[in-house]
Nucleic acid binder design. Structure first.
Lengths: 237, 237
DNA sequence: AGTAAAGTTGACCATTCGGTCAATTCAGAG
DNA sequence: CTCTGAATTGACCGAATGGTCAACTTTACT
């Protein structure tokens, strides 16, 4: 397949399971979506095989195509769900509270998201690397507005001298990059660190390290506090 | 296709063009590799189509399979070339010179790499997100050694109080994440910033911003220098 | 129990895929 | 020019792919 952008809006989940919401096969839909998230996140849209998704969901291909008329439809549902998760997690960055606490919380939340939904993160990354053919509209819509909005908060902090004068957009790009790398590049980090329990050992260390570096890097610690913080023993190379 | 790891070592480019190195069809090989880099970087291995690579290279599919016996072979050559670029760019981090200058240079170099070889960066990212099926050996080999080696330098700096006590491995993960995000997530950054000339406008701002944030975040500026640096007007959201 | 809708399944189809191959052209050495 | 190996090409093949369908089973409601 070459492009995958056809029918325009996508009104709803656009599938059978007509009336009853708490229907029987609603569980099936979720199983399929879960399986599809896994496969799409590793292979991308073009590389994924419907049959592989079906096998992973434990049912025949025909059944998958019963719930989602086409592979494209399934992909749309999956990626929009992931995008929703991503946009939700953006949440609010408190305008009032002190900047350091706000960023600290935001970074922690994003890191936690990578930890608990690594496949979602990878799927999102795949989509964007592929040129964001499906979600580009959302990116230049909702996300752009969000960045513009929260960027204003950053600007305010900067004028108050509570934050280094960094282009807010770049600040977000860096935060996103650093927090998502632990999900997206798991294979690389695993290979380099050779830890046994990635989830515990890597995220354990990352949470402290990443938050500290970003808080310091964004100039959110007015006090020239102890540069030498007391945490180590996290990763071992 | 499911997995793509078969014949063991891969001795050489393992293709025709037998003896003469400066051969005639050596240009063809490079055209194919360039085209393949583009397609693989957007679709991944499974999603890429040999025929699309051929079309993009301006020659029939049969000719591509003449130079590279299989799609898998072609992918191997392409990804190993990209990996070589990546590992080369790792370069040395000067042990002697002052840490700030060293990191400043390293980050700039990595950023420049993303700027000038965005497809290579995306292909590398795709491979890793997919679980690094082809290059995992290199990652846990060369790259791991490199990190261990250079991590020692970081440790030394830290003991001398010239760098914040951050797990060296995590420091690298953050540097890589931030520098590569401008290539890998170009579609997202483009959508959010809506700049006209991505290369100039984004990388122009990023170079300064990223370097400053990382240098500060890694605690490389002993002097509590001006938190409010004088650069802006880079991006506009 | 009876019935209609929802859900399940495997066989099946048209298309596309990676890869092969024989026929042909091209380039260079003698 | 002749000859030889490299290079080019399109036709072709078997396997895999996304999607369809008719037959069948289960569920829910009266």
């Amino acid at each position: 397949m070459e492009t995958y952008q056809d029918h325009p809006p996508l009104g709803k989940p656009e599938t059978p399971s007509a009336g009853s919401a708490g229907g029987v096969g609603e569980r099936q839909r979720e199983r399929i979506i879960r399986a599809a998230t896994g496969v799409f996140s590793r292979k991308g849209y073009d590389g994924a095989r419907v049959d592989e998704i079906a096998r992973k969901a434990g049912l025949p291909k025909g059944n998958v195509l019963y719930y989602f008329k086409t592979k494209k439809d399934l992909y749309r549902v999956v990626i929009e769900q992931v995008l929703g998760l991503w946009l939700d997690a953006l949440g609010d960055i408190a305008v009032d509270g002190n900047p350091e606490a706000a960023i600290r919380q935001y970074v922690s939340r994003k890191l936690s998201l990578s930890r608990h939904y690594p496949e979602a993160s990878r799927l999102f990354a795949m989509e964007v690397i592929s040129g964001a053919p499906v979600i580009s509209g959302h990116l230049s819509g909702q996300l752009r507005n969000w960045v513009e909005d929260k960027g204003g908060v950053f600007k305010k902090w900067q004028e108050e001298g509570q934050m280094a004068k960094i282009d807010p957009a770049h600040a977000f790009f860096m935060i996103w990059a650093v927090t998502q790398t632990y999900a997206d590049f798991e294979a690389q980090i695993q290979a380099v660190t050779a830890v046994e329990d990635y989830d515990t050992e890597i995220y354990g260390g990352a949470t402290t390290e990443v938050v500290e570096v970003l808080v310091r890097g964004l100039g959110l610690k007015s006090e020239a506090s102890e540069i030498l913080s007391p945490h180590d023993g996290a990763t071992r190379i």
